[in-house]
């Protein structure tokens, strides 16, 4: 057997998948901006992604802020720089931890659910049924989810930022004995518009990635329950990896601005 055959097959498979993803993305985006808009479905998805993810994102950022406060204290106290806790927590949460952790949590909650739902719809012929009922599945199923991801994740991250900073405040004030007024004023002083904005841009990108991966893998799932399971796994794994890659890319871009 030709030893290059599996390598060639893998390369062709990669390009085929990439091509399909690009076509899927462009088709989905074009339906996001072209009427008709299914406002009811847009609303449902926004509530599902925005409102119902709030407890998960809130808990994640709260404990991330608390842990960051403690770790910063443990590290910075070695060279008597404990006063920097408020600054580190504020910048760490708004620029990095808030968007990344929220994105990963939403990938687990929403990306998996979308892939499973659309995958089940695919294998039970519900997506074919949409087609026969003169309804474009991209417009009816995909566009509302992507728009909801793009718009809701920044809102979630904004709330998560506040909760995360509050977590650092709680640890610093009630455990480490910092002055609450000084802590808050330090936080306020260090934060710039760019810090929060870069985090929200990341959040929008992550919202797009999570919903796109969930929809893409679910929509293209094949082969019954096993196929739906594989689609769900692929959606979460690919969204998580892409979040980390794009987090770095966006961080680089904002450092250059």
């Amino acid at each position: 057997m030709n030893p290059f055959r599996p390598i060639g097959k893998a390369i062709l498979g990669f390009f085929e998948s990439t091509g399909r993803l690009i076509v899927f993305t462009l088709t989905a985006l074009s339906h996001c901006v072209r009427p008709p808009f299914y406002l009811r479905l847009h609303g449902q998805q926004m509530i599902d992604i925005g409102y119902y993810s709030l407890p998960v994102v809130g808990m994640t950022t709260l404990f991330a802020g608390m842990a960051l406060g403690l770790q910063t204290y443990a590290g910075f106290s070695r060279f008597s720089a404990e006063d920097a806790i408020a600054k580190v927590v504020a910048l760490g949460i708004t620029r990095e931890l808030g968007p990344v952790l929220s994105g990963l949590m939403v990938a687990g909650r929403i990306g998996a659910a979308m892939a499973a739902e659309l995958g089940t719809m695919r294998v039970t012929e519900q997506i074919d049924a949409l087609d026969t009922l003169s309804t474009n599945p991209h417009k009816y199923l995909i566009a509302p989810r992507i728009i909801a991801g793009l718009t809701m994740l920044p809102l979630l991250v904004f709330v998560g930022d506040i909760i995360g900073i509050f977590g650092g405040y709680v640890v610093s004030v009630y455990k480490l004995g910092f002055n609450p007024g000084i802590y808050l004023s330090e936080t306020w002083k260090v934060l710039e518009f760019k810090d929060v904005f870069s985090g929200l841009v990341k959040a929008a990108a992550f919202g797009f990635i999570v919903t796109l991966m969930g929809c893409f893998h679910g929509y293209n799932s094949r082969g019954g329950a096993q196929g739906v399971g594989a689609a769900t796994t692929n959606a979460v794994v690919s969204a998580s990896i892409l979040i980390l890659v794009f987090n770095y890319v966006i961080t680089e871009l904002f450092l250059k601005i």
Binding site: T120, M121, T124, E125, A129, D131, T132, S134
Partner: peptide, 22 residues
């Protein structure tokens, strides 16, 4: 696509498993 949707408006389909929207 739009033309096909026009044609499909004159078509009904009963799927094997029903394919009802959950």
């Amino acid at each position: 696509r739009a033309e096909r949707e026009r044609v499909n408006r004159n078509i009904g389909m009963l799927f094997q498993g029903g394919a009802l929207f959950d």
